[in-house]
Simulated scan of single mutants.
Amino acid sequence: MTAEPAANPQPSAQPSPGWRNGAAAVAMLTFAVDGVTPVLAAGRRHADNAMAITHQQFDARRGTPRLLDILDEFGIKATFFVPGISAELWPALVTDMVERGHDVAHHSYSHRPATQLTVAEERIEFERGYEALARLGITPNGYRSPMWAATWNSAGLAVEHGLSYDTSLMDDDRPYVIETDHGPLVELPPHWSLDDWEQYAYLPEPHLGYVIEPPEKALALWTAELDGLREFGGLFQLTAHSFLSGRAGRARNLRRMIEIIYDRGDVTFMTGTQLRDAVLVDPTVERRRLEPLAVDPAVYPTW
């Protein structure tokens, strides 16, 4: 069954043509297929923890297939961020995403935050993750830093390898273009308030989170953000993790969130690549360079 959007009411803001294509807001549904990588990134000793590993393997066994089926119910195309290790462990799952028409994007190799790596290590992580997708015949357009922990080098590294959009920086709620030494990179800003990790993540060892909130709370938070972004003309980028939002009650909650977006009638769905294309042809979109912050060591003497 394919759900059809409700008839369009008057939008809550006067949208302008451009990257929103006349809609009040753009909804971009994104899913991180992290699998075992967050557990192993906390230390390889956790590979001996059968509970923790199987908790993450729910991602491929049940979570991602369930979420893919829900997206099929609505005919929505989403964006899946896949670490290289997940691509190596579950190649059939990742190619299934492509075959269903979804946007598969780069999410490092091992899910270690780039801010904890040297410049050389960040490059190796990036290249190994890119190559893992390439072995499946996938050329990604987008990149998301693990834990959104981008460095000042991350944007240039993405463009150097042919990627054209990123979802790691949080200084806006509308897309913009980063001018790098290697060319432009479309930034699609995310935010923690639209991430299911802060609502659902519970794993005591390794510590990935200590919360299990009711899905209704997450739905209320996300709906408030949706309506705010409709008023101000922004990007509603929902970030879900298949080992979290793929659980049964939470999956039903995600379906309800999609229904709410449709019911608003003035929001359009886009993948990361579709939104990139819309941004690049919009002459009103802001273009800027990333400028590292210079910090006075006399004021902040601690490393």
Rank of each mutant, 00 (worst) to 15 (best):
A114F: 09
A114K: 02
T115V: 14
T115E: 13
T115F: 04
T115K: 14
T115D: 07
L117V: 06
L117F: 00
L117D: 00
L117N: 00
L117E: 02
T118F: 11
V119T: 15
V119A: 15
V119L: 11
V119P: 04
V119S: 14
V119Q: 14
V119R: 14
V119Y: 11
V119M: 08
A120P: 02
E121Q: 15
E121V: 01
E121H: 08
E121C: 06
E122Y: 09
R123V: 05
R123L: 10
R123C: 07
I124V: 13
I124M: 10
I124Q: 09
I124W: 03
I124D: 08
I124F: 07
I124N: 03
E125C: 06
E125D: 12
F126P: 12
F126W: 15
F126E: 05
E127D: 14
E127Y: 04
E127A: 01
R128P: 01
R128Q: 14
R128K: 11
G129A: 03
Y130N: 07
Y130L: 15
Y130S: 09
E131D: 15
A132S: 15
A132T: 09
A132G: 10
L133S: 02
L133H: 06
L133A: 06
L133M: 03
A134E: 11
A134S: 08
A134T: 02
A134Q: 06
A134V: 03
R135Q: 08
R135H: 10
R135K: 15
R135Y: 05
R135T: 08
R135V: 08
L136E: 05
G137A: 00
G137V: 07
G137L: 11
G137R: 06
I138T: 07
I138F: 10
T139E: 14
T139N: 13
T139R: 15
T139C: 13
P140A: 09
P140N: 04
N141D: 14
N141P: 07
N141M: 12
G142L: 02
G142H: 05
Y143N: 01
Y143A: 02
R144G: 04
R144T: 01
R144N: 00
R144E: 03
R144H: 05
S145Y: 04
S145N: 01
S145Q: 04
P146K: 08
M147P: 00
W148Q: 03
W148M: 03
A149C: 12
A149E: 10
A149Y: 08
A149F: 02
A149P: 04
A150T: 08
A150S: 15
A150C: 10
T151M: 14
T151V: 09
T151E: 10
T151H: 14
W152C: 08
W152T: 11
W152A: 02
N153E: 10
N153C: 13
S154E: 02
S154V: 12
S154G: 13
A155N: 11
A155G: 13
A155P: 02
A155W: 09
A155E: 01
A155C: 09
A155H: 09
G156Q: 05
G156M: 12
G156H: 12
L157V: 13
L157T: 09
L157D: 03
L157H: 00
A158I: 04
A158R: 01
A158E: 01
A158L: 02
